[in-house]
Design a protein around this nucleic acid. Structure first.
Length: 276
DNA sequence: AATTAGGGCAACCGCTATTCT
DNA sequence: AAGAATAGCGGTTGCCCTAAT
């Protein structure tokens, strides 16, 4: 993720047609809402206003700031870009594993998944998933295809593995709600109890050879958090009262993920977020 | 050096859920 | 209790950047 306040893209569009030519229409233009990439000045303004009034009443924030933006746009900008608790940089292999596991359990519940990854936004995870995981799926599809054509022993009606599941239908596993979601289609609440799948199979798909991953249940459980995340960008994170990544009640009742390491780590991060 | 294709990601859209009056 | 306003979520779009040709 880029975190420079300078923007390469400066394509600003305006809601409605840019047809203002007369004085009256030009006047109306003033009231039209800005869209498109945010400028450094806008970011600065928004951050200041949020600092003053908090990050709740977004329509109010939008008005008070003088930004010609919708509250919705302000909220998105704050949550996905300006929030001091945001973590920058590439997903670590640990985070990748967490995303994989949680997606397998919950499907495309990005915000819920994001709550388990402090500093990461739902948008970021969503984008990450779509780019990286889809790529993996395509690779697997290709490999699978090659093995099929070479062996000719493939039967399309046979018991499908994850691989074949991901490439047999219109919907890829990587683009849908994951295995759990597929299994319990339409049963939203069931996903918490979603069937456990063989995560090892998924882990094996991840090329972790280049990464040094602290073994699960290792040093972390001895009280040393080795959660291999990049340092946070702002000390505000330390006492950030924002509930953004606070586990909601629903989540807190959730059965723990497959490894204690992960659970403990999240709790630790969450308590840090909650501050004193 | 110029062009093209694909990756990456910020931001918008439409819908639903929640809160407020 | 009902309608309006606001917040949140997931899906999608489109632009910039960069590697490949």
């Amino acid at each position: 993720m880029h975190h420079s306040f300078g923007f390469g893209r400066q394509v600003i569009s305006i809601i409605g047609k840019n047809k203002a030519k007369t004085g009256e229409e030009a006047n109306m233009m003033q009231q039209d809402t800005r869209k498109g990439p945010w400028t450094e000045q806008e970011d600065f303004l928004l951050a200041n206003v949020v600092g003053l009034f908090g990050d709740r009443r977004w329509d109010f924030v939008a008005k008070v700031s003088g930004l010609n933006r919708t509250g919705k746009s302000c909220r998105l900008r704050w949550l996905n870009y300006l929030h001091p608790g945001l973590k920058r940089g590439k997903m670590t292999s640990t985070e990748e594993r967490i995303v994989l596991e949680l997606h397998a359990r919950w499907g495309n519940r990005w915000s819920r998944i994001a709550r388990r990854l402090p500093g990461r936004t739902d948008n970021e995870i969503k984008n990450y998933w779509r780019t990286h995981m889809r790529k993996k799926a395509q690779e697997r599809k290709r490999v699978n295809y090659l093995s099929i054509t070479s062996s000719e022993s493939y039967s399309s009606s046979s018991n499908h593995t994850q691989d074949s599941l991901s490439c047999s239908g219109k919907e890829s596993f990587y683009d849908t709600g994951g295995l759990a979601a597929i299994a319990v289609t339409g049963k939203k609440q069931k996903e918490e109890e979603g069937e456990r799948i063989k995560m090892d199979e998924i882990w094996n798909d991840i090329d972790i050879s280049k990464d040094t991953i602290t073994p699960l249940n290792d040093s972390y459980n001895q009280g040393l958090c080795t959660y291999s995340c990049a340092p946070l960008v702002s000390p505000i994170w330390e006492y950030c009262p924002d509930p953004l990544w606070r586990m909601d009640e629903d989540d807190s009742k959730m059965p723990p993920p497959s490894n204690d390491y992960f659970q403990t780590c999240c709790e630790a991060g969450t308590s840090t977020l909650k501050g004193p």
